[in-house]
Nucleic acid binder design. Structure first.
Ligand SMILES: [Zn+2]
Ligand SMILES: [Zn+2]
Ligand SMILES: [Zn+2]
Ligand SMILES: [Zn+2]
Lengths: 144, 144
DNA sequence: AAGTTATTGATAGTAAGTATCAACTATCAA
DNA sequence: TTGATAGTTGATACTTACTATCAATAACTT
């Protein structure tokens, strides 16, 4: 039910399917993303990829968000953060200490969000939900 | 149960209680906020209040967020938006066309968020949740 | 009224992008 | 294989939303 995704060839295929050209720069950005495990910023990628222009990094990240390959989320202080997208429909928990991002699906959450039509006037067109945590390893290392 | 708040004297008193000085600039920012009904940006206020420095507007808004007098939320494209806070504990629905913000409380939402401890590793320290809508009046005016 | 200390505002700087546009190149059709 | 064509790139400049500095100013305190 919960399908996992994301791996170089798939991503490239997804871009092709969207009618986009497969360029060396886009391959580099995709590869850089797949080397990361915790959330990252656009500048992280731009800094790492010396051979790719900043503008291209931002453009590619936006493309990948639209293609549902990565997620863009917002930390409590408003800072944006990117993270690979691995589940179909999901929300995120983000560790505010180390930036570790976990995706989760919860049918109850989705049901409740749908049921909000009773309390909210107008037509619901989307939502954002992020849960901020201190992850297990950050808790462990701070209780020393 | 759902207490309503926010009105000049109360806000000023709240700032005083926090040990802050009541300056002309802060009064002006508070007054400007109370004249607004839909969500607003810091620049909206700064532009309206010619006699108050931009930095002071930003500083005061931050203060008011901390004092729980206004809420800061984030639109789908990442743009921040401020809105007066009128309910004790709540979330927001935001019209993506006109910026109208409604606050709502939903016990089910709160219960579900608490129950997420079962699915999420680590200690939950906070969350963000916004529901994006097309409000009644925007729907009506576009179906002409 | 005077003293202390928070507050202010002009200026400059940062973070996260976006707009421009000429140069470049992936893809396709011949 | 080679063009032609249209998508893509990168340097630069600009934008939005702030934050840091710090001397000048004004609010509370007594
Ligand atoms: Zn995700
Ligand atoms: Zn959802
Ligand atoms: Zn609110
Ligand atoms: Zn509306």
């Amino acid at each position: 039910m919960i399908s996992t995704r994301t791996s170089q060839p798939d991503v490239i295929a997804a871009l092709e399917d969207a009618g986009l050209r497969i360029t060396g720069q886009r391959r580099q950005v995709v590869a850089a993303i797949e080397r990361r495990d915790v959330g990252f910023s656009a500048e992280d990628i731009a800094g790492e990829l010396e051979g790719v222009g900043r503008a291209t990094v931002y453009r590619t990240l936006k493309l990948l968000v639209k293609a549902d390959v990565i997620c863009k989320l917002v930390l409590p202080d408003g800072t944006p953060m990117y993270s690979p997208s691995r589940l179909e429909h999901h929300h995120h928990s983000v560790c505010t200490s180390c930036g570790a991002v976990e995706e989760f699906r919860d049918t109850t959450v989705e049901r409740v969000l749908r049921s909000l039509t009773r309390e909210i006037e107008g037509e619901i067109v989307g939502h954002r939900m992020e849960v901020f945590i201190r992850c297990r390893s950050c808790l462990d290392s701070s209780s020393s």
